[in-house]
Nucleic acid binder design. Structure first.
Lengths: 231, 231
DNA sequence: CCCAAATGTGAGCACTGCTCTCTGTTGTTA
DNA sequence: TAACAACAGAGAGCAGTGCTCACATTTGGG
C-alpha cells in the first residue's frame, strides 16, 4: 500500500507554507533585509528559536522566497504567452504586460529577484533554474515566430556579433534550450534588459513626477522593441 | 574681513566626510541595509550616540550617500561626454561605457541609486535634482546631434506618442531642460532603461554562466541603441 | 569673561539573528 | 505493544543593532 505523508509531514509542510506566507506579507510592508524571523514566530505563536527547525537561517528563507517568486513569475508569463489565435507579436506584448502587472502587484517580489542583491546574500545555485524559466517564457513568442522563418532574414540592423559574444550567445541559448540564431538571441537579451530596466526605474520611483502612470511609456517601449525583435 | 570657517566647523565637515567614507567602505563589504552606525562609531573611536550629532538617523546618512553617488556618477558621465573631436555617436558610447565602468567599480553605489530601494526608505526630494544630472549627461550627445538637424526627420520607426505620453515627455524634457522632440525624448528614455537594465542584470549576477564578462554584450547593445537614437 | 551652542559620554530600551540545552511529542521498528 | 530515535518546541542567553536621554565637556562669539 502507498502510505501517504504522515500527519507530522503535512504539519511541517503547512508550517513552512505559513512561514513563507507571513514572510511575504512582512516583506510587502517594508522590503527585503528587514524581514524579521522573530516577528514571524510571534505571529505564529511560536517561540523564535522554533523557526530554525524549518529554515536554518534567514538567508535560507529568503532563498526559498526567491525561488517561489521566479516560479510564480515564470508561470504567469507562460500563461500570458500561451498560444492562441493571437500572433507572436501580440503574444509577446501580452507576456511583457503580464510581467509589468506582476511587478506592480508585487513590487517586493520583483525586487527580490531583479533588485539589488540582499546584504551579503549570494544567490545559490537553486535559483538559476527558475530564473531561466522566466527568460524562456519571455522569448517563447520570438522562438515561435522565427521557427517559421528563414533565420538569415533576421536582424539586419544588428551588427554581426564578434567571436566572444557569438560564443556566449550560443552557450546561453543552449543552456536555456532556446532555438534562436545568434542575432535573435542578442535581440532577446536586449529586449529583456530594456524591460527589466524600465520596471526597475518605475518601481524605484525614478519616473515620479515625469512618467506616472507609466502605462503609456511602457507600451511605447514595448511596441518599438517588438518591431526590433522582428515581431 | 572675511572670517573663514571656525576650527569647529572644519572639524565638523571633516567628521561628516569621514563618516561617509567609512560608511561607503562598509557598504562595499556588505551591501545596503547592513550599514551599522555603531561600527562606524567604533572605527572613529567615538561613542555610538555621538554619530547622531552628524546624521539624525541612518536613513539620513544613506540619503547623503545617495546624493553623493548621483553627483559623482553625473560628473563622471559629463567628463566622459565632454565635447571633443569625437562625433556624437562616439561621445554617447563613451558616456555609456563610463557608466558601466563606474557601476562595475562601485557596484554598491550603483545599487544605492538604481537598485531596489532600501527597507522602508523613501527617497526624499533632495535626490531628484542630482538624479536628473545623470540623465542629462546621458542624453547630452543626443541633444547636440539633434540640435543640428531637422527634428521631423527623426524617429521614423517610433510610433507617434499618444496624448498622455506626449504630455509626459514634454513635462520630463522641460524639467530637465532638454531640447528634445517627443520621439527623441522617448528614444532616450528607452535607451536609458536598456542601459540600466543591462547593468542591473550584470551586477546582480543574472549573466553568470552566460555572459561573463559582459563587455562584448554591452558593446553590442550600445551599438544597436546608438543607431536607434539616430547617432 | 561668560554663557549658550555644539559636541561627546554612557546608560538604557526595544529589537534583531542565532545557539544551546532541555522537555515533550510523534512515528517506526523490534 | 514497548522502546527508541527523530522531530518539534521552550526558554535562556550572546552579541549585535538603531535610537533616546540626561549629563559632562569643549568651544567660540557677544
Amino acid at each position: 500500500m502507498t502510505k501517504g505523508p504522515t500527519p507530522r509531514q503535512v504539519a511541517r509542510a503547512e508550517n513552512i507554507a505559513r512561514i513563507k506566507e507571513l514572510a511575504l506579507a512582512q516583506l510587502a510592508g517594508t522590503s527585503a533585509g528587514e524581514l524579521s524571523l522573530r516577528a514571524i514566530a510571534r505571529e505564529l505563536n511560536i517561540v523564535s528559536s522554533a523557526i530554525y527547525r524549518y529554515f536554518p537561517s534567514r538567508d535560507d528563507l529568503i532563498t526559498a522566497l526567491i525561488v517561489d517568486a521566479y516560479d510564480n513569475l515564470g508561470q504567469t508569463l507562460e500563461e500570458a504567452g500561451a498560444r492562441g489565435r493571437r500572433g507572436p507579436r501580440r503574444r509577446w506584448l501580452d507576456v511583457c504586460r503580464a510581467m509589468r502587472e506582476w511587478a506592480l502587484a508585487e513590487p517586493h517580489r520583483f525586487a527580490l529577484v531583479y533588485g539589488s542583491s540582499i546584504p551579503g546574500y549570494r544567490a545559490p545555485r537553486d535559483t538559476i533554474a527558475p530564473a531561466g524559466r522566466v527568460v524562456v517564457a519571455f522569448s517563447a513568442p520570438v522562438c515561435d515566430e522565427l521557427g517559421a522563418r528563414e533565420p538569415v532574414a533576421y536582424g539586419d540592423s544588428w551588427s554581426r556579433p564578434g567571436r566572444v559574444l557569438a560564443s556566449q550567445l550560443r552557450v546561453s541559448a543552449d543552456a536555456l534550450e532556446l532555438d534562436l540564431p545568434d542575432a535573435a538571441m542578442l535581440a532577446v537579451v536586449a529586449a529583456f534588459a530594456r524591460v527589466i530596466g524600465a520596471l526597475t526605474l518605475e518601481l524605484n520611483g525614478h519616473f515620479v513626477g515625469g512618467f506616472e502612470p507609466a502605462d503609456a511609456l511602457f507600451d511605447a517601449l514595448l511596441d518599438d522593441e517588438a518591431t526590433r525583435l522582428g515581431l
